[in-house]
Design a protein around this nucleic acid. Structure first.
Length: 277
DNA sequence: GCCCAGGGATGCG
DNA sequence: CGCATCCATGGG
């Protein structure tokens, strides 16, 4: 994969390790619009427009450096896939989602987004986040920014219910009132265990959501979030019928180690996209 | 009407 | 600790 960085554009050629649709549809990001061979992706108050064909991707943005990091463009996914394809459980999933990249999104936006994600489905998650942006985020002209923590602190429990958060409304209210910008900044500097511990102290954040926040918002790759799909994957592959997510998390993290986050995304996308049981 | 969705909080033993 | 139960809401 070759990447050329210009002032307001990234041009990726030989793009076999980056499939935009796969990357957007593997449940790590909720603010994007796809239209044919183009897409617009939003993060914080920024956006990027992506255009692609069979072996080239263009990323048009005013913040080239942000979206270079956002799409994890300095990582060699070919090498990661070579390692993971040797795993008998993973081979077909890696081949199926061979263009997935793990996004480096804004930690605060990911915390809020994944509190909403708990026991929810992706379409409803997207709708709720879009509601929060359009009602409480800054109007950027053609779109709305993700609401800042300061902006969300003015939002009531009833407002969250109107956004479709259901019983997560009170958890969200509590976490937003508790959280500070300083918390977010110091979180980025903590080690993995300290990050996990802090995240679990937030209302609406349990083990799975904390792992997602670390994977998609803090750049921690040796975590393996276990949701209902991964639970199905595990039972299918091991011919078991457990619901012990702690056990599944430990076994899969031990198995895939530093590549756990990547393995998890290949599994999730393959099984969910094919609606495999 | 039933089941499910990128689960977490709570209470009880 | 582990375990069961409850929790809004919309789509299939």
């Amino acid at each position: 994969m070759d990447i050329k960085k210009e002032k307001d554009k990234l041009i990726i050629t030989n793009s076999q390790d980056f499939n935009v649709i796969q990357t957007l549809n593997c449940g790590q990001i909720f603010r994007f619009v796809v239209d044919g061979d183009t897409a617009v992706v939003y993060s914080k108050d920024k956006y990027a427009k992506l255009l692609w064909n069979s072996n080239t991707i263009q990323i048009l943005t005013e913040d080239v450096d942000y979206f270079y990091k956002f799409f994890d463009l300095d990582r060699d996914y070919a090498q990661i896939k070579d390692v993971l394809r040797k795993d008998e459980f993973l081979k077909s999933a890696v081949d199926y989602g061979s263009g997935i990249r793990i996004i480096n999104n804004d930690a605060y936006e990911i915390i809020i987004s994944f509190i909403i994600s708990a026991n929810n489905n992706i379409k409803r998650i997207k709708n709720s986040i879009e509601y929060l942006c359009s009602h409480y985020g800054k109007n950027m002209g053609m779109y709305y920014a993700f609401p800042t923590l300061e902006e969300l602190k003015k939002v009531s429990i009833q407002d969250y219910r109107n956004a479709g958060l259901g019983y997560r409304a009170e958890q969200m209210f509590d976490t937003v009132q508790t959280l500070t910008d300083e918390d977010i900044e110091s979180l980025k500097k903590k080690n993995k265990d300290e990050q996990f511990k802090f995240l679990l102290s937030l209302k609406g954040v349990g083990e799975k959501v904390a792992n997602c926040i670390m994977l998609f918002g803090l750049g921690v790759k040796d975590v393996f979030p276990v949701d209902t799909w991964i639970n199905k994957v595990y039972n299918n592959l091991t011919n078991t019928n457990t619901t012990d997510r702690k056990k599944i998390t430990k076994e899969l993290t031990d198995r895939y180690k530093d590549l756990s986050g990547f393995a998890q995304q290949y599994f999730f996308y393959y099984y969910r996209d094919n609606n495999l049981k």
